[in-house]
Design a protein around this nucleic acid. Sequence first.
DNA 1: TTGTAGGCGTTATCAA
DNA 2: TTGATAACGCCTACAA
Lengths: 341, 341
Amino acid sequence: MSDTTHIPTLDDVARVAGVSTATVSRCLNEQQKVSAKTLERVMKTINDLGYTPNFNARAMAAKRTHTIGAIIPTMENAIFARGLQAFQETLHASGYNLLVSSSAYQPDLEAEQIRALVARGADGLLLIGYERGQDIYDYLQRRGVPTVLAWTSHPDGGHASVGFDNCAAMRMLADRVLAMGHRRIAVISGIVEGNDRAEGRLRGIRESLVAHGQDPDALPVIQTAYEIENGAAAFETLMAQDPRPTVVMCGNDVLAAGAISRAKHLGLAVPEDVSITGFDDIELASILHPTLTTVHVPHRDMGCIAAQELIDMVEKRSMGATRKLEVSLAMRESLRPVVEP
Amino acid sequence: MSDTTHIPTLDDVARVAGVSTATVSRCLNEQQKVSAKTLERVMKTINDLGYTPNFNARAMAAKRTHTIGAIIPTMENAIFARGLQAFQETLHASGYNLLVSSSAYQPDLEAEQIRALVARGADGLLLIGYERGQDIYDYLQRRGVPTVLAWTSHPDGGHASVGFDNCAAMRMLADRVLAMGHRRIAVISGIVEGNDRAEGRLRGIRESLVAHGQDPDALPVIQTAYEIENGAAAFETLMAQDPRPTVVMCGNDVLAAGAISRAKHLGLAVPEDVSITGFDDIELASILHPTLTTVHVPHRDMGCIAAQELIDMVEKRSMGATRKLEVSLAMRESLRPVVEP
DNA sequence: TTGTAGGCGTTATCAA
DNA sequence: TTGATAACGCCTACAA
């Protein structure tokens, strides 16, 4: 085996097949513009040589990459996994590839990755939530990169978005909790700063309290990053109050999983001693013990619709629509009515 | 705001700053070769214009991308999340970017994605496991793309790899299970075909049986994809046997989570009625009820070491070493000795 | 249906 | 320290 192995290029294929590079290129991109005979010969040569088109050269010449970029806050847990999977499947069906990065919930990292993805020639971008610097939106518009915001519903409709109203969703759950007689509510929230989803969910609870004549400022809230262990720690802190809460509402299922786990270690029965709720309805929610009452989010739908909208924008079929999806309550074992003494 | 916004290029910067494109390029890549004065002027221009280097052009000219590609079998659950996170952090610290794709456990999809990543100019690749067609290894070598195999320990040392011996690890757990008096063992395995990790783990159990004078062919095994629901279904099937198993060993924690969940629904107490074990020790394992006895895999170490090895290979400091890591048993509540009647 | 040739935005080699 | 200029591999009018 020679050590100076040459990586075949379009030129090589053209030379061996006895045609021009233009013809080879056509065989790759617009087969209908090529006679069946040459097509066959060229394809055989491509195979024989083991030729693979150079993506970067392609991107430069065509100014299109058939690549969509997505930046999600975390890959560490399953929150975005299902939606992203659907997103990617839909893209793939239309001949697009997906590039994913994770911003670790850090705005500056997200900005950096947006630039990186654009620099790589992404035809479009999927971002989570709407809360970020105006400079980023300006940049995206200047570069003409179609962008869809997901997992959120942008309040002033200035951007293409596919998602749901986090505030209304959580308010719906809180209404139910209050209707069950709970009056001592505590909250384990995600970090609200720079996270419109977390902020909306927390606000939803407060709005519900107000609507029921309760004082929203008296609500005990712990903000913490979305990790199981953090949920556990926050739960323990909240339960140390006297009198202790009858229900702990969590900003997502991961925090709730931590809370349930810690409850067990503390010898507290759920929901007999304390109710716990989540948000997202990831697979974990239905295998926890007790099973978790949570807000069901249509992750797969969101992913599919976001992908389709983005493709439509890239291909100039849409100017950027706003789609608002419905969520529902998944009532399970971890929440139950307060039993009056 | 003009509608014909122009995206600034190196040329634009050069023209505005009154220098050549070569100088601008130097300011970007080898600042020490440029006088402080021009450097400052050029940097200011870059800022003013909002210039971002075009990645594809760069890749073509430099034949390096500072990008590493990784193809993992799934993003749907947390199995690879922690290790990949560590992998990416280590890369980032050395100025490399990470591109991730998921193959959904499909060999042909993996092959396709390997080609895609190479076509994009990835400087190196991280793959999971060693079992794949020789043609792929040939391709990688022909293209001169450094590759590290992880989550596995290649038997014949022909490739760079960072991982552990799946077979020995599971055998260690099985030895323990047998030492606890269990004789009716059943297994929920991942799909062995094309998955050397799953195959090794299953083999480990069989070897342990043989060493203990048991018949490995009498072992009930269900192979199924790594999903919670599949673990649950398989568990139910296995428990329908008479006499039923005293322990169900699962190919990973996700399957075990499904098994525990289903046990509860069936009214079976774990570990009183049946013991359950997992593999991987993902975060989920310690919050399940009961907590899961499993094989602890040093995910973060694996990610860090793999990244470092890959970087060393890309930068010609290593020819491709093989690193074998130690695993340990995480003994928790879900496994307990058989109580003789 | 096929071929010619210019250009995409960088880097890198040589000179100056 | 700086500047021309030739690649890099492909696409795409435009011509034939």
